[in-house]
């Protein structure tokens, strides 16, 4: 029964990641919808990082960094796209952060995305130089 093809021989009954994926999703939702900037940024980073971690652990990808960069890019693009599509161009300015419910939230998402891209990039470079 357990000799199913495709099932890794490292089949584990424990994984640290699910709790953090869940926590990341919770914090990002609270942060984005309630409009708490730091919670949104950290929540999204935790979510993206845990997704990268859980995918690596379960063997869908070999290294976490590309996933992290990918999630970051997607988030940054969504935020930028929404901002361009729905906000008047004049409102998109650094001075406006903190004003207007939509713009601040989109900035939070974009910042989280950019941080993830940076983390993924740094992680990837450090790994290559250290090995």
């Amino acid at each position: 029964m357990e000799e199913q093809p495709g099932l890794s021989d490292q089949y584990r009954t424990a994984s640290p990641w699910p709790v953090f994926v869940a926590l990341g999703l919770v914090l990002s939702e609270i942060g984005v919808f309630i409009g708490l900037f730091p919670v949104a940024v950290f929540g999204l980073i935790l979510f993206g990082g845990s997704v990268a971690g859980i995918l690596t652990e379960s063997g869908y990808v070999t290294r976490p960094w590309p996933t992290l960069v990918g999630v970051g890019v997607v988030l940054a693009f969504i935020a930028a796209g929404l901002a361009v599509a729905y906000l008047p161009a004049a409102n998109i300015a650094v001075a406006n952060i903190g004003n207007g419910p939509v713009f601040t939230r989109l900035v939070a998402v974009a910042v989280a995305g950019i941080v993830m891209v940076a983390m993924g990039g740094v992680g990837s470079v450090m790994e290559q130089t250290s090995v």
Partner: peptide
């Protein structure tokens, strides 16, 4: 809030690296 989140993130990373120790076992090896 920012401080709290930063502490949380550091705590999570610390917890993960500690868990790595037992995580590397290979059952059915």
């Amino acid at each position: 809030l920012t401080g709290l989140m930063a502490v949380l993130l550091v705590g999570i990373i610390a917890a993960l690296t500690r868990i790595e120790n037992w995580r590397s076992y290979t059952p059915l090896a």
